[in-house]
Structure formats: structure tokens, C-alpha cells
Amino acid sequence: MSRINDVGGMAGFPAIAEEPDEPPFHADWEAHVFALNGALIKRGVYNLDEFRDAIERMPPEEYLAASYYERWITAITTLLAEKGVASPDELDVPHD
């Protein structure tokens, strides 16, 4: 069965929205997520295929609701937990 990311040919998506003078990143955190992923792959914490897989196995409703780099940070934290680098609790932002 295909996963939610496999949207080729799927009906129901809206018109394509172009953004004039689009910056490479829309917020600092997006640039940080991009760089963080590169650093972790370079260190061999996980590889590029594992990273893509972690995005693509997000629950469909979460995948569709998330922005592009939100999917990245979700995949990064999923893999950090699965690889035993940190527990899910440690990866959560502490609440006061």
C-alpha cells in the first residue's frame, strides 16, 4: 500500500501557489532544522534513506497538517528516539 507522501496523480489538491521573491527559509528555525539534519547524517546518527522513511511513515493526518520543515523536525526527533540518542521525554520541550 502506498504511503501518504505518494501523492503523484492524486486528486483533490488545490491550485499551485507561487510566492514571489521567496526566501530560502521562511524562519530561522527552518534553516536550523535543515542544518541539523545534515549534521546528524554526516555524523552517521542515521542516513538519508532512514530520514526520508521517517517522514514518509508519519500518520497521514499529521503529514498533511505539517509544513515542510515541521515534517523534518518530526522525522529527526523520531529517529533520535529510535536510535536511542534521547528518550521521547527528553526530546520534548519541558513544560514549566
Partner: peptide, 13 residues
Amino acid sequence: VISARVRHVEALL
């Protein structure tokens, strides 16, 4: 919210 999450993960690493 997401910015705080990214900072937290970075600091942890």
C-alpha cells in the same frame, strides 16, 4: 512553539 522545540533538540544534542 516550533522554534522552541528546535532550540531544545539542538541544546540536547
